[in-house]
Simulated scan of single mutants.
Amino acid sequence: MPTNAQWFKGNTHTHTTNSDGDTPPEAVARWYKSHGYRFLVLSDHNVFTNPATLASLMDSTFLLVPGEEVTTSFQSASVHVNALEISRLIPAPKGGSLVETVQNTIDAIRAEGAVPHINHPNFRWSLDTAVLWRVKNDRLLEIHNGHPTVHNEGGGETPGMEDAWDALLTRGKRLYGIAVDDAHHFQGEFAPERANPGRGWVVVQATTLNGRALVEALDAGRFYASSGPVLEAITITESQLSIRITRQGDFKYTTEFVGANGRVLAVNKSLTPQYTLQGDEMYVRARVIDSAGRVAWVQPVFTTRYVERQP
């Protein structure tokens, strides 16, 4: 990245009264702006909310990136794919199978020059790793979603989203992990059983607060995702992955460096964890866990041993 690159905190998945949220778009945007977010995607279901209608909220500190949660289904499975940096409504497609329905949605988003990310695969247990593996031309997958009914941790025979991510990476699918809050509830009580804001976000490295620059950086994996921890810097060289953690209050941190099949390669408990590549890894990613159990996810570093495969 250029030396003038900055970190921009944002959320790519939230809802308003334009679909199934409880608060109008302007008030939703004001919540994020007042809580230090630099950009926001209003991603209502099959609705395009034009940021131009909220131009008074945007300035050098805050940007609305146009988006939509393209929402369809196949039989009992829900297919929800966010479209980032759109210029118009993208009609939700159908397909003759679940894989075809997901693929048609991805293709429709790409055809508009927009960037897709697949939302909450375990919602209604809709998209398993067999389906996700067969989808092409996608790079972004929600591994953490703050909605209380999406089953981030999996259950029964279905893996959690981090395990699914590692399974796909290990098989040869290059994916980057997104965290979002998928907020619907800004009114009344903030409680675990409600879909409140502030539970997941991304921090994107880009040279400017510009919608195209932000979504291209996301699509290229130049970001980290978090449900709490703040990272000051991530440095990647040919031989090392280094992180600087910003300590918040008296929290303590444990960083796990994770490789193929989700195997933990090393553990570090400092504020400046480092991992030196040994030469036999396919990829290495990092998971920073704070003493409240919240996590920041650093995107995988792919080594020369990594072979990207197509289904």
Results as ranks from 00 to 15, higher is better:
residue 240 Q to M: 07
residue 45 H to D: 04
residue 5 A to Q: 02
residue 157 E to C: 02
residue 253 Y to T: 10
residue 151 H to D: 15
residue 162 E to L: 12
residue 170 T to V: 09
residue 278 Q to P: 05
residue 162 E to C: 11
residue 13 H to M: 12
residue 225 A to Y: 02
residue 230 V to K: 13
residue 235 T to L: 13
residue 112 E to M: 15
residue 63 L to Q: 06
residue 70 V to Q: 04
residue 304 T to D: 12
residue 170 T to D: 07
residue 26 E to Y: 08
residue 8 F to A: 06
residue 273 P to E: 10
residue 307 V to L: 13
residue 236 I to R: 02
residue 40 L to H: 08
residue 169 L to K: 04
residue 230 V to C: 04
residue 241 L to E: 06
residue 285 R to N: 11
residue 196 N to A: 09
residue 49 T to R: 01
residue 278 Q to S: 09
residue 231 L to D: 02
residue 129 T to E: 08
residue 280 D to P: 05
residue 44 D to C: 10
residue 293 G to P: 04
residue 299 Q to F: 14
residue 209 L to P: 04
residue 263 R to I: 13
residue 159 P to E: 11
residue 2 P to Q: 02
residue 202 V to P: 03
residue 4 N to T: 09
residue 206 A to T: 11
residue 251 F to A: 05
residue 261 N to L: 12
residue 68 E to S: 05
residue 285 R to H: 09
residue 299 Q to W: 10
residue 16 T to F: 01
residue 164 A to G: 09
residue 265 L to Y: 10
residue 145 N to Y: 04
residue 126 S to K: 00
residue 215 V to E: 07
residue 39 F to Q: 09
residue 189 E to Y: 07
residue 218 L to S: 03
residue 59 D to Y: 11
residue 224 Y to A: 01
residue 30 R to Y: 01
residue 79 V to Q: 00
residue 50 N to Y: 03
residue 267 V to D: 01
residue 70 V to S: 04
residue 27 A to E: 13
residue 65 V to Y: 03
